[in-house]
Structure formats: structure tokens, C-alpha cells
Write a protein that binds this DNA or RNA. Structure first.
Lengths: 288, 288
DNA sequence: ATTAAAATGTAATCGAATTACATGTTTAAA
DNA sequence: TTTAAACATGTAATTCGATTACATTTTAAT
């Protein structure tokens, strides 16, 4: 996809020297960019309180061939970028307002991680998992459920897998581990003392430790492989929201990678899992 | 944001009765949709070999107010399509290729749910949660970790909250429940027999049951409130990937709603939680 | 204070889009 | 098979929006 000229970005980060009336235009557009894509040059001129040629010149200044072209570029910009405006939830937002905001924040986080993640580390993680004899997913607190989820995801491969959120159990398993054992430790902060100690213990036992955590965190430094997620999370206001999503998606990626590596080898295994679940479900056309 | 009329979709799935010359227009546009957004009506008319009014009528037929409006809608359609390339992971993809694909699939699912979710039901769910005396999150299998995650999320409110993934325990709690108790049952398929029974038991006990599940599923029909998530998931190939993310985000939304409703009331409670965690963490500047 | 350059507006012009109307084409009924 | 009515399409006129040329105002520098 060719990089579109991000009109909205140019409007918000008004680095460019905008003149007085050009700023009026910026304001008028940002007030309701959506409807600006539908307005005529006259309407927008009136709304901004400037003349029509001013609008026109403004459009050209931003790289459009004219006003109609500008509207299209603006629309494109809205569709891709501005839909995910990371606007904070406001105290007097109603459901219809804050619901998309939260979804957008999640989407934002995911696209950001997508664009910043180190796929080489992912690749090496996949290599390690394929080679491992046994896989443990460790997480504490909010990351506990993520580890548990990973178990379900990796269960379809033939390697024994389990998740643990009890620090003592984690420590015991780490101490009893050996070469070929793989620990995936999940921690948003990467600063949970107990998990750091467990990581050290596991590495001393010659097991492999992969961390899914924050860049430059103590945990990242202690792992054989650190998958670092750059998720901006204002943990001061809320408990982690978006980091779990990023962690889960990264685990999806790794699972997919392992799956691709194994080719069709595990398909029969997967079918057996599916079949085992069948009797727990109501048939599709059951009376509701 | 209002659901955009997907022009491209209307063009490709030419279900609508297009006439001879209208088909010429479709072809001309699909030949190079990108440049069609930049063409004038005369250019496009020539390219398609039809008259200008034909183009104009065609645009109106597809729901645009005219040709310029059509171009904008087309541009929007292109942009969103490009972003949501739901291209399946290919057997010979390398990490750098399938990693963004999976992230995009997740983003895709979230935006789709965002645009299709019924915020009125969300609102009523928030109402119920605020009024409830006790909250239980139930999930089985893949949804178990989601329920567990919800516990962490809702713990910051003063209402007692717990999650359970043992069907017997779920059933016991449902049987022992009473008015004021709230059950949030999470199931991607909405067809897990055990959970359906538990829902019935809970409702007979006058507890409230909220479902986070598939539209038109047995579970949705059995709940007081059904938050239905329209997540396309090819469960045949892979175990659920994106549905968890949607479920988690919906729970984030609800938690946020409850939080807003309570205003600052729970802030001291939240601070206490934070402080309790402090000693488990390494200080930021600890030696790495 | 004066002048040049930049910014903005006015008004004329140009061009694109739309509409009204005429012509041709298909379809169905006689 | 013929005929009329509905539909599809094109031509030409018209309208409306966008653009340009030019005049005026504002700003900044000497």
C-alpha cells in the first residue's frame, strides 16, 4: 500500500507555517473532518470565515491539486488514520462515545506493536518452541490469563504445554527444569520481582527463557529472547488494557509460525481436539 | 462512526441489476479504482465508453449524492479495504509477512465489532453491573482466561467479583444465587451445553445473566442481556483467535462505563490496589 | 514612515456536474 | 408479429462549484 499523504497529520501537527486565515481553515476542518469531506468550497469558506480562494490555496499548499482532490485525500486520511484517534475517554462521555474510543485505543495499540515489533526475535522464538521438549507459560496478575490463553493456543502442537500463575509453582518448575524446557514469561512491566527470580533460576538450569515484556525492562535483560512490546499504557489511571491484547496477538503470531513450520504434521492432532469438543456443544440448529 | 456504504463491495458482488452500460462503468472503475477516484466524470465516461449522465445515474444508484460524492465514497472504500486486507496466512509466508497479517486480522475484527456492537445493550449491562451485589464471570475453554481477565478488571470496583472455569462450580454458584447476583457468561459459540444449563439455573434463581457471545446463539436467547459479537472466525482452520480480543475489549468498555458511572468513588480503592502491588515490583532504575 | 512582500478578498471565468429532454432499445401484451 | 409502454442511453442546455486574475489589505523590514 502506497503511503498516502496524511492530510490529517499535517493539520494536527501544524508544524508548517500556517497563516491566520489558514489556521481558521484548519480549525473548521478539524471541527468536523467527516463533514468537511462532503462540503463544497463555499460552505467550508463560510464555516471558516474566509474566502473561497483561501481554501483553494490552502489545499494546494498541502499537496492537493485542488479542493476536490483535497477532499478525497482528507477522506482517505480519515479512513486510515484518524479513525483511530487516541482520544481519551471523557468523564461525561456516553456509551456511544466512549465505546468506539476504547476500541480505537486497542486498534491503535495493535497497529503500533505491529509496526514496531522485531520479527527476527519472533522468528527465533518460533525456532526455540519448535525445538523445545516442554513449554511453560508463566504470568502473574493480569498476565496470568494471557498465559492461560496461550496454553489453549499451543495445546494443538504435540509438545506438552502448561501455564502457571502461582509464583511458588513457577519457581519449583524452573528449578526442576532442564535443557529443552522452554519458559515463556509474560509481564507487562517486566519488573515483577518473583518472575525475575524465576527467570534466573530457569536459566541456571539450562532451560530457555523467552520474555514477552516491556523494552529495556529487567525481565527483557534476563531472557534468552526478549519479545518487547512497545505499548503505551497509562497504568496510572487504569489497569493495563491494551497490553494484554498485544501479548495475546504476539502469541497468536508465534503459534501461527510454529504451525506453519510443522506444516500439516499436527492436523490430525487438531482434528482430534475438535472432535473431543463436539459433544459439549449444542448443534447449530438447536432450539434456542 | 456510521457504517460506510462499501462501494467496492457493491461493485464486485454485482448482485444489483446492472444494465449493459452500467457494467461498462463497473469494469472501468474496477480496472483501476485508485485512479478512478482522481478522474473527472468526462474522463471516466470516455474510458468506459458511455455518456456522462450514465456515470452520474450510476453513482446515484449506488447511494451517492452525485459523482464527486461517489468518488469520495470509493476512496473511503479503498482505504478501508486496503487496511483490512484479510489476506489469509499462506503456507510459505515468512515471519515478516504473516506477522502483520495476523495483527491486521485482529484489527479487522475489532473495528468490525466496534461498528456493529449494540451500545444500548452495553449501557444496560453497565446499569446491571452497577446495581449488582456480586459479580461472577464464567467461561469455559478459550473463554476461561477471558473471564479470569475480567476479574482483574472489575476488581477495582467495590463489588465482590470472581471468575470460574469449572462447570460444576459454575453450576453450584448459579444454583445458590439470588436476586442481585450477576453472571457474565462468555462463550464464543454460545452453544456450550454446560454453560447453557448454568444460565437457566441462574435465571430461575432470579439472578441476572449477561452473555457475551455469538448473535442468534442459544446462549444469547437465554440471557437477560446478550452482548452479541459479530466476529468472523474460521474456527475450522484455527482455534479462536480474534474473538477473545473482542470479548476482552468489550469487557474493557463495560469496565470503563462502570468506572465513569461511579465517578471518583472508587479512586481510593484503586490506589490501595496499586500500593499493594508496589512491593512486588523492581524499582524502575533497578540494575538490569 | 515607507516600501516591498505576503496574505486575503472580490469578481470574473472556466470547467465539471447535473438536469431536462429527445432518442433509441428492450420487453411484454395484444 | 405488432405495438405500446417502460426502460436505458445519449445530446445539449444549464447550473453550480472551483479556479484564476487582479485589487486590496495586512504585515514585516528598512
Amino acid at each position: 500500500m502506497k503511503t498516502p499523504p496524511e492530510i490529517i497529520a499535517q493539520l494536527t501537527h501544524s508544524k508548517r507555517g500556517f497563516s491566520k486565515s489558514e489556521l481558521k481553515v484548519v480549525d473548521a476542518i478539524l471541527l468536523d473532518p467527516e463533514s468537511a469531506t462532503r462540503a463544497s468550497i463555499a460552505q467550508l469558506a463560510q464555516l471558516a470565515g474566509v474566502s473561497e480562494p483561501t481554501i483553494n490555496r490552502f489545499c494546494k499548499k498541502l499537496g492537493a491539486s485542488g479542493f476536490p482532490d483535497f477532499k478525497i485525500k482528507l477522506a482517505l486520511s480519515l479512513a486510515s488514520d484518524a479513525r483511530f484517534v487516541n482520544s481519551a475517554v471523557d468523564a461525561d462521555d456516553d456509551v456511544g462515545t466512549f465505546t468506539p474510543k476504547i476500541f480505537d485505543a486497542s486498534v491503535n495499540a495493535l497497529t503500533r506493536v505491529r509496526d514496531s515489533i522485531d520479527t527476527k526475535v519472533i522468528q527465533r522464538s518460533i525456532d526455540q518452541i519448535v525445538q523445545s521438549k516442554q513449554i511453560y507459560f508463566f504470568g502473574l496478575g493480569n498476565s496470568g490469563p494471557v498465559a492461560a490463553d496461550a496454553t489453549f493456543k499451543f495445546f494443538r502442537f504435540n509438545t506438552p504445554v502448561s501455564s502457571h500463575h502461582d509464583p511458588l509453582m513457577q519457581r519449583m518448575l524452573a528449578a526442576a527444569s532442564q535443557t529443552g524446557d522452554l519458559f515463556v514469561m509474560i509481564s507487562h512491566t517486566g519488573r515483577t520481582t518473583s518472575l525475575l527470580e524465576t527467570a534466573d533460576i530457569a536459566r541456571r538450569a539450562n532451560a530457555t527463557v523467552i520474555g514477552i515484556t516491556a523494552p529495556e525492562s529487567p525481565l527483557a535483560a534476563r531472557c534468552d529472547l526478549a519479545i518487547t512490546l512497545d505499548v503505551p499504557e497509562n497504568t496510572d489511571e487504569y489497569l493495563p488494557m491494551t497490553s494484554r491484547l498485544a501479548q495475546l496477538t504476539v502469541l497468536d503470531v508465534i503459534a501461527t509460525g510454529v504451525s506453519l513450520r510443522q506444516g500439516q504434521a499436527h492436523i490430525p492432532h487438531l482434528r482430534r481436539i475438535k472432535e473431543s469438543l463436539h459433544d459439549t456443544r449444542q448443534p447449530i440448529d438447536s432450539a434456542v
